[in-house]
């Protein structure tokens, strides 16, 4: 009932190549991401999808190529720069503080935004107190948004897997990111949980205007959610385009279904 309009290019990777020793993980990958887009990266296991995300948020440093973000072209991204400049992510394997509550875990996502010094924070006084209240409010909004009020005070280690995934998404959201990198947010979920998560991804994109880069194996989900899809296979870029175009691309079909050699 309404037309999606995509904004300007916010992130562009050009000719990225990444090797570990003799292993070529990414080979001359180039694509761009536009403002407000849901951009998916797909490919079989070992295609280099997670490596690509790691390059974008500066965890891996590619040997060749450039990354242009917010108009600044770099040879490599730095992790803290990425975080400061509004790139947040979730992980393929959940990386939460298991002993801490949902609330506290999401609060850690606010870390970069906390300005008052650690001593004031420790005694919860003056500016620190005011600041904490503001952050707590933001965190509560996220809890409300993700509908996890009932587990607000539950230690995340006790939560089922699908809920932990949601908390992790909450923590990434707490940084109020411009670009959100989601590494297989629906892995290991049942149909209902996947539907919930899909709805949250769409709502985040819609309500906050967050640009999303998504890695996902469930083709149904990818084709439904994405504006454009990049296909990788053994470090090579097979295709790049809207879901329908990618779906009918012969090279992509071959990579997924296999071809006789």
């Amino acid at each position: 009932m309404y037309e999606r309009t995509l904004g300007d290019v916010v992130l562009e990777v050009r000719n990225i190549s990444l090797s570990f020793g003799a292993m070529r993980v990414l080979n001359d990958i180039s694509f761009d991401v536009r403002q407000g887009e849901i951009r998916s990266i797909i490919g079989p296991n070992g295609a280099g999808k997670s490596s690509m995300l790691n390059v974008i948020n500066g965890f891996y440093h590619p040997q060749e190529g450039t990354i242009t973000y917010r108009g600044e072209t770099r040879h490599e991204m730095k992790v803290h720069k990425a975080a400061e400049q509004g790139i947040a992510r979730t992980f393929q394997n959940i990386a939460l503080f298991k002993g801490m509550s949902t609330l506290d875990n999401i609060m850690t996502g606010r870390n970069l935004k906390i300005k008052s010094n650690i001593l004031l924070q420790a005694i919860y006084w003056g500016k620190a107190q005011k600041e904490e209240i503001e952050h707590r409010k933001k965190v509560e909004e996220i809890i409300d948004f993700l509908e996890i009020q009932a587990i607000r005070k539950t230690p995340v280690g006790r939560l089922p897997y699908g809920m932990q995934k949601r908390v992790e998404l909450g923590r990434a959201l707490a940084a109020e990111p411009e670009i959100l990198l989601l590494d297989e947010p629906m892995a290991g979920m049942n149909v209902e949980e996947k539907e919930d998560m899909s709805r949250f991804v769409l709502d985040i994109n819609d309500e906050f205007g967050t640009t999303i880069i998504l890695i996902e194996h469930d083709m149904g989900v990818v084709m439904d959610l994405s504006d454009r899809v990049v296909v990788l296979d053994y470090g090579l870029q097979l295709a790049d385009g809207p879901p329908d175009e990618v779906r009918s691309n012969q090279a992509v079909i071959d990579a997924y279904l296999g071809v006789p050699h």
């Binding site: 009932m1 309404y2 948004f145 709502d203 819609d206 309500e207």
Partner: peptide
């Protein structure tokens, strides 16, 4: 209003 931004 959540989710109904584009309901016109």
């Amino acid at each position: 209003p959540r989710g109904m931004r584009h309901y016109d």
